[in-house]
């Protein structure tokens, strides 16, 4: 049991440390990579809770897709970081005071004796499949929520297209199907001419 506790504290420390480093480093690429590390170590913590499907999804979706996209954006756009960092020192006292206040509140609000009482969840047998359990409730008990989430994605598609799709004037736009269907008569004009006399 103690080895699990040790693993938990190790990954918890990595998560907190990399999250802190992520918001303080100067280089945006480093920040993105540190965020990847945060996701990875959170995935390990989920794995300790036997939520292996969620842990792997976190790595696949966030690390594999979202963060790679994010890195692309960071590398392709020339963002002036000096402007973004302006006011960091100025707002630091307010931010720090707020964070400290919230931390104290959480410290007092969380009933630690009660949390100790709850303890860790009882381990499931080795043949228990987290993925299977999720799959069984996703389309049954949670079908309405699942469909609602699907509609949200549909709205995201509509929004993205309606906000970005526009036909610019003056672009050299080609219509391939028209190009293919073109007939000889439309392009080639045969002109009969008298041969010139020598």
């Amino acid at each position: 049991m103690w080895i699990e506790t040790l693993i938990f504290y190790f990954f918890a420390a990595v998560t907190v440390g990399s999250a802190l480093a992520m918001i303080t480093v100067r280089n945006p690429v480093h920040a993105a990579l540190l965020l990847v590390l945060t996701f990875f170590s959170s995935a390990f913590i989920w794995m300790l809770l036997e939520a292996e499907f969620l842990a792997i999804t976190l790595v696949l979706v966030y690390v594999g897709a979202v963060m790679v996209l994010f890195l692309f954006v960071v590398m392709m756009l020339d963002i002036n970081l000096a402007v973004l960092r302006e006011g960091f020192v100025r707002f630091l006292p307010v931010g720090a005071a707020l964070a400290l206040g919230l931390f104290t509140m959480i410290w007092y609000a969380f009933d630690r004796a009660r949390l100790d009482m709850i303890g860790a969840p009882t381990p499931k047998p080795a043949d228990y499949s987290n993925t299977r359990a999720l799959g069984q409730v996703l389309y049954t008990d949670y079908v309405f929520a699942f469909e609602a989430a699907a509609v949200i994605l549909l709205v995201a598609i509509i929004a993205a297209i309606s906000l970005t799709l526009r036909r610019r004037k003056g672009t050299k736009y080609q219509n391939p199907s028209e190009q293919i269907r073109v007939r000889k008569a439309e392009r080639l004009k045969v002109i009969k001419m008298e041969a010139e006399k020598r």
Binding site: F144, A145, A148, I152, V155, A156, A159, S162, L163
Partner: peptide, 25 residues
């Protein structure tokens, strides 16, 4: 009647509204 559904409804509303506000590009 559950946190989950309420949140999803809220996000559906909010996402549609963001797009509608920015509609005049």
């Amino acid at each position: 009647y559950s946190f989950l559904l309420l949140y999803l409804g809220l996000e559906l509303l909010a996402l549609s509204l963001y797009a509608m506000i920015a509609f005049r590009r």
